Simulated scan of single mutants.
Amino acid sequence: MGHWLYRNIVEPGKLPLLLALMSFVVTFAVTRVVTRMIRAGRGPFGNVRAGGLHIHHVVPGVVLTVAGGFGAVASGREGFAAGLSAVVFGVGAGLVLDEFALILHLDDVYWSEEGRKSVEAVVLTAALVGLLLSGFAPFGVNDLSQDEIADRGTVIATVAVNFLFSLVALSKGKARTAVFGVIVPVIALVGAIRLARPGSFWAKRCYRHRPRARARSRLRAYRHDRRWAGPRRALEDWIGGKPDPSPARLPGPNRH
């Protein structure tokens, strides 16, 4: 394990990236635990306020992200300063993306249905960074044997093909399939072959004059969402907490 870590992480200069990913995931997990305790009224934690203003944790997150980013640029890829900057950046990124939905909607939607976008952003970011560390980006490793060069060349070629399939899947409106398809070739291939989701770039360009394809696309999307919406919501609730129920709206045009 130590030899693999040195050859694939330390020697190529990926240790700061590993530290950033670990601090990112830990920060998100700790933040969600603390916010869920505040929501439940448990523990010694509470919302941070200054002069009656609620200070969201995205604010210190932005400060830490900027400080860690500039520190990483100034320190390079090696040394204690690089590792420290990576940790600071990871902590800041974890705080920022935990409130990604707030930035997107410019509203405090943390515990609402729209707040689920924060969990999705964190999961996708962690998956992408993990991809760089998992050996699928094996650049910067020195003194490789011919067999190792051949193996890594095969990996790089495979990733390149998977990446093309993933781009097709992304154009078909399948973001999660595109991300995880880079790691698992079958996922990328299936996502690239199957029908595009309604409203995606692919559907708008390729299904404009194909009404049967548009109808099949809508039907497939409906069946897929009906089948997987429940498990996906349960997983997101387990990771980020169950959102508050949406307020009931009065029927009719004069509900105000």
Rank of each mutant, 00 (worst) to 15 (best):
V182C: 06
A40L: 08
R197E: 11
F70C: 04
L132H: 07
R210A: 14
L144N: 00
H54C: 07
E113R: 13
R176Y: 11
R232F: 09
G199Y: 12
L64Q: 01
A86W: 04
A40V: 04
P243K: 09
T154I: 08
L104K: 10
S23W: 00
L131I: 11
R116N: 11
S134I: 14
G46T: 00
L21N: 05
A126C: 02
P247D: 01
R152H: 06
F28E: 02
I55S: 04
A127E: 01
V58R: 00
P231Q: 14
F45V: 11
G94S: 06
F45W: 15
G199A: 14
H54G: 08
K242R: 15
V10A: 05
P231W: 08
A196C: 13
S85L: 09
G135N: 07
A221Q: 13
A121L: 05
V26L: 13
S23I: 07
F136N: 12
R214H: 10
F139V: 03
V123K: 11
A82N: 08
A213I: 08
R233D: 07
S75N: 03
A127W: 01
P185K: 07
G69C: 03
V58Q: 02
G240P: 01
V190Q: 06
G173D: 01
F180I: 09
L53W: 05
H256N: 11
R233P: 01
F163P: 02
G173P: 01
T177F: 12
V186I: 13
H256L: 14
E78V: 07
V129D: 00
A50P: 02
F139P: 11
L235Y: 10
E148K: 02
A82H: 04
L53Q: 11
D225C: 09
L18G: 05
K14W: 02
G83I: 10
L53G: 04
V184I: 15
S112R: 09
S246F: 09
F163I: 00
L131T: 05
G83M: 14
S112T: 14
L19M: 15
H256K: 12
G135Q: 02
E236D: 11
R226I: 05
T158K: 02
T35Q: 11
A50T: 09
A67K: 00
A234H: 10
L124M: 09
E120Y: 13
Q146D: 08
R218T: 04
S246L: 13
P60Q: 01
G252E: 00
T35L: 13
R210L: 12
A74C: 02
G51S: 02
L21C: 05
F24P: 01
G90M: 05
A72D: 03
S200I: 14
G90K: 08
E114Y: 09
D107N: 15
N142E: 12
A160R: 01
M22A: 15
V186A: 13
G173M: 01
I9C: 03
T27S: 07
P198I: 11
V10Y: 05
L84M: 14
G252A: 07
R39P: 04
V123D: 01
G76T: 08
F70V: 06
G13S: 07
R176I: 14
A74V: 07
A67R: 01
E114T: 09
S85N: 08
V59Q: 04
R194D: 04
A192M: 04
V10T: 14
R210D: 15
W202N: 12
V91S: 07
G140R: 00
